[in-house]
Simulated assay, not measured.
Amino acid sequence: MVGILRELSGEGVSLWLDGLGRDRLADGGLTRLVRDRCVVGATGALGDGDAYREQLAALAAGGATAAIALRELTVSDLRWACEVLEPVYLRTAGLDGLVSARIDPSFIEGTCLTLAEARSLHLAVDRPNLLMEIPATPEALPAITRCLGEGIGVHVSLVLTEERYRQVLEAFLAGLELAVANGLDVSRINSVAGLPVGLLDTVLDHELDLIGTPEARAFRGQGGIALARLAYRRYERALGSARWTGLAARGARPQRLLWDATEVMDRRYRDTRYAEELVAANSVTLLSEQTLTALADHGRPASADRFAGGYADAEQVLGYLDRFGVDLPKLLAAAECEALADLRRARVELLERVQARLAEFGTAP
């Protein structure tokens, strides 16, 4: 029932679609989700299918490499998605209607490379409702500040710890201050910080299973939401700072928290549990179309008041994890490394698929 999705929107939750492909754009799928399912944003991801055939044939005829073809296909998809969501962007005065574009993970090892790639993709797409997705690695944090300082919106992804989120907030505030110094209108600069709740639960549940005691197992499925709650508390505190107040007076928007990895992998849990639990004012929930459909069908979302009232419980959960011997910083540092490696592997596989598609036309370099 769409009423559940409207209820979430009324609580201040923006629903974004996780991943786009050209088939969904070409057949009007994204347009219908915006119209009928309260979707107000999306993350870009190259898909497969016949919708790419014509452009691939032209790229192959022009002798494009797989890397060049991938960039051209990606830019086309992102422009199209931005245009579909432009009415939402205009209706919400730029708060929503946003499309997030992941930069090539091979460029995130250093600040200068990250910044150069973000600038290049942003310029190529050339749409005001585009965000650059940049992982929250220590090396990338200065690039996040520089992007914001140049008026480039940023989706900071892979925020795994409260301490890293503190650093992301600092990079965000510094970026807006740089934008002010550069004479830019900060009211037009958007940013979200993505916390992959499902990934956190997967990592922590595995560790609790290794510990193996009934007491440890009783805390399965609680760590990710606890970390999300404490991140949101830090967000609320940042909004009360004098530093933020000065930026808000210039029209700046807060950097919203985005709940990522909301696909439930453990079938012992409800398939909509993250979307139901993570109901917080002025936040974003990133959902696959499958989870969005499940949420509309049988979701039971909590109220935003309940979320904000769970800080003490969240601290208690993390306290028990420490008591069980879970080394959270070490565990999540390893998870970050693995997640970044997964991004790189996915990029290589994507290039291989594009090259195979070019080969269908007989001119793959």
Rank of each mutant, 00 (worst) to 15 (best):
E139M: 08
R256Y: 02
R229Q: 12
L115K: 04
T213W: 01
T291N: 05
L90C: 12
D48W: 09
L59C: 11
D297T: 12
R267Q: 11
V348Y: 01
R32E: 10
Y165L: 15
T114C: 10
C337A: 15
A335H: 03
E177F: 04
R71S: 11
I103A: 03
G240I: 05
A26E: 14
E7T: 05
P365E: 05
L351P: 07
R166W: 06
L358M: 12
E11Q: 15
L258I: 05
A314K: 04
D50Y: 00
L340I: 13
L208F: 05
G19F: 02
P254F: 01
I152W: 03
A64E: 13
Q316R: 12
L292N: 08
G183K: 11
R37K: 15
L340K: 00
R91A: 15
A174G: 12
S76L: 12
Y232E: 08
V2F: 01
L70W: 07
A193I: 01
T145A: 10
T293W: 00
A226E: 06
G212E: 09
A81F: 01
C38K: 07
D260L: 02
R250W: 02
V125D: 07
A339R: 09
R127S: 01
V168K: 09
S9A: 14
G153P: 04
L295A: 09
G62R: 14
Q55D: 13
A181F: 03
R268S: 11
A231V: 07
E360W: 08
Q355V: 01
Q167L: 11
R35S: 10
L210M: 12
A226V: 13
